[in-house]
Design a binder for these strands. Structure first.
Lengths: 334, 334
DNA sequence: CTTAAGTACTGCAACGTTGTATAGTCCACA
DNA sequence: TGTGGACTATACAACGTTGCAGTACTTAAG
């Protein structure tokens, strides 16, 4: 019972199509007619029916963003930024939480929502490789490392280089027993693998022994538990590179709980530059990816694929985004 | 070009309507026919077109959740929980970030997306009172205090009582100069007003002077700045009640930076029980609302309004959710 | 043997929108 | 005076789905 073009047309004394033309800003409408139609629109409070529009055009104006979890500040930040970037194109963003479940992610890639969304920005956690390469008809942009030569564009920082930067920074403090927290075995844990590779390369270069601590997931509790294990078994480290900030905050918690000083006894660096790290005690050194740029590029890339222009169907592209080392108290001695 | 009922019908040798009947689980379909149709559906990979369905039925299967910002861990958590609760009813949740802009919130309430969503769960920040009372045709559930006798259901904890609990806890430590951080003047800042009321009531009861510190917004940086002002001007407090956990974490940061001990010199309590507070140093005492229940109730309430049952159009209801005091290191002396 | 009720299936119209085709008017230019 | 073009407006047909009405057949009851 909300008013449709029909009702507006009746009130303005014109045809349905003329109202449609006014709504869509078609140029060849007489000013007087336009004014009359506008008035009718205002009066009735007409709002275009998106379902009907989509049915005709095949476009919904909705893109989906799939992230492992919103609870994680990094993903929440990315989500916020992507919503903002999408707004410039007057797209609506449907945020999908996969919880890292492979099944859920598979459904997304298979295009279960095919008809409802125009495109997908996807930060996979459980899936990698060929599984992502399914061609679903819906344009997709991947966030995070390209893991296979699938049909999708992707945007990412150079994880390996960034991890090397972080490790090198710990090295530059003169630390000799540098541990890593965040190792994951699963072949799909690409982020972990790449950060581990960066870490290893620097240690190998320096001739230091690598100390690798596995985690279940990348939350504070995992970091705290991993740190506890590190302290209980064998020689304790004098520096730790955590594969994200949450792990680092958990690790710091354990260290302080045990009466150790950060960075005095153990220097800690994280990865992501979430806001927590700017107000924690000690404040957290970290690798800061250029998140606003990641969001902007992801949306732009999707826009190109969605556009009817020539760029709509080129080869998948790989966009690298800058990162920088942010030194804070957790690695500042003296 | 994705297959439609038409294509399935052709392949199975039945009418379009029969396919529709199979898809919708209509009972009077011969098993043999059903099987044939199912096979055709599988073979073609048919997926119902939601736009067309919505056009016919008026229902989209999408509800919107509007929160001030996803960056804030409390809202991120609520969002995640609501998505889960909605999933049980196979609803999709469209998350909308208002950034606390009044204009954006007004648009939501006015039903700008009217056609695209079946219902709205709304956590208002900039709007209050009559402005929320607009009848848009789309069922709405409010999160947070009922602020006016509008046409919407709402779910909330007893903010004032919870704030009183927090303040009483500080009082029970024997503290005498108890400050509040998070005061906001704006008439729409209902949350702030209610927590302030709870705080004041306890101080008045105890005959203590109330020390009220205003903030721009509820972020860590605001808490840090407010704490700094509190320390610079006048007699420093020996306890602080922050109106949310982010403010508290910011305040703690400032205290530690200045060499004060928490809770030794100043005890600090927050509000929301976000994960950060469980791993910060010191860990943060707080008021924990029953967030899963808030989410579940909000979705259930919306479901009732959306249902065609008798409960669809009763008087607006007000649901109270439990909270509890969580004591951690930031208020544990000795 | 008729009638009623139940089962299995089909056809048509409609949801609200927009692209295409078309028709009429008015002006300018040769 | 005719002809092309720009301008204004309209009618019609789809997009994919489902509600309703209806057909044909089967079974049960009177």
């Amino acid at each position: 019972m909300p008013p449709g073009l029909k009702d507006v047309a009746a009130r303005a004394g014109v045809s349905i199509k003329t109202v449609s033309n006014v709504v869509n800003g078609y140029v060849h409408v007489a000013p007087a007619t336009r004014a009359r139609v506008q008035a009718a629109i205002e009066a009735l409070g007409y709002v275009p029916n998106m379902a009907a529009r989509q049915l005709r055009s095949g476009r919904s104006g909705v893109i989906a963003l799939a992230v492992p979890e919103l609870q994680s500040p990094y993903f929440a930040e990315i989500a916020g930024l992507i919503v903002q970037a999408a707004e410039q194109r007057s797209w609506t963003v449907l945020i999908d939480q996969t919880d890292g479940h492979a099944e859920r992610e598979r459904n997304l890639v298979a295009g279960l929502r095919r008809h409802a969304i125009d495109g997908l920005i996807f930060s996979p956690l459980a899936l990698a490789g060929e599984e992502l390469a399914v061609e679903s008809g819906t344009p997709m942009v991947l966030l995070g490392e390209r893991v296979w030569h699938g049909p999708a564009d992707h945007v990412a920082i150079d994880n390996t280089a960034a991890a090397a930067d972080a490790t090198r920074h710990l090295r530059s403090l003169g630390r000799r027993r540098i541990a890593a927290i965040g190792v994951q075995d699963s072949p799909s844990a690409v982020t972990s693998h790449q950060r581990l590779a960066g870490y290893r390369s620097v240690l190998a270069e320096a001739g230091l022994e690598s100390v690798e601590t596995p985690v279940e997931s990348f939350h504070r509790a995992d970091g705290a538990a991993a740190m506890a294990r590190l302290l209980d078994e064998g020689e304790p480290p004098d520096a730790v590179f955590c594969f994200n900030d949450l792990l680092a905050l958990g690790a710091i918690r354990t260290l302080l709980e045990r009466g150790l000083s950060v960075p005095g006894d153990v220097a800690v660096i994280g990865f992501d530059d979430i806001e927590d790290g700017r107000f924690s005690t000690p404040t957290l050194s970290t690798i800061a990816p250029d998140a606003p740029r990641i969001a902007q590029l992801a949306v732009d890339l999707l826009a190109e694929r969605l556009g009817d222009g020539p760029a709509a169907s080129g080869a998948p592209r790989e966009l690298r985004v800058d990162h920088r080392l942010v030194v804070r108290e957790s690695t500042t001695v003296g």
